[in-house]
Write a protein that binds this DNA or RNA. Sequence first.
DNA 1: GCCAACGTTGGC
DNA 2: GCCAACGTTGGC
Length: 153
Amino acid sequence: MAYWLMKSEPDAFSIDDLERVGIEPWDGIRNYQVRNMIRDEMKPGDRAFFYHSNTKVPGIVGIMDIVSEARPDPTAFDPDAKYYDPKSDPDKPRWLLVDVKYVRHTQRVIPLPELKADPALEEMPLVRRGNRLSIMPVTEDQWEHILSLEDPD
DNA sequence: GCCAACGTTGGC
DNA sequence: GCCAACGTTGGC
């Protein structure tokens, strides 16, 4: 079982939205490195942090389960979709998604500056300069460490 | 295959 | 809203 961190802008899709719907196709991935990771390494049963990006307080806000294999992202075929890609052919899909399932909110938002300041997390791509991956792997040690930050005492 | 221009991400 | 970083596009 592997661990991940997945970013979403809460204005587009938030942890509260995920709680409401339960299971959601994580669509809109348009980066080859991320696509290859979900295709080759992500498996049902893996667990992920939900991260709010591009918002007033960016940070980790919840936990979810990966509940599907990677499968074609139908929004790539939809001319009206925000992430429509005319080069993605339904017979040979270029973009993939996985389904994610709500587990719970974290006990508090764990803000990015706190993650950045933590020596135990300095290897995380999230806190490294210039990183732009919307999905990234988290080691088991990092996962456990972040969980230990939930309770500020 | 090079690389300038352009678009996107995302913190601040 | 600004802008650094970086991926993609397309002319050559």
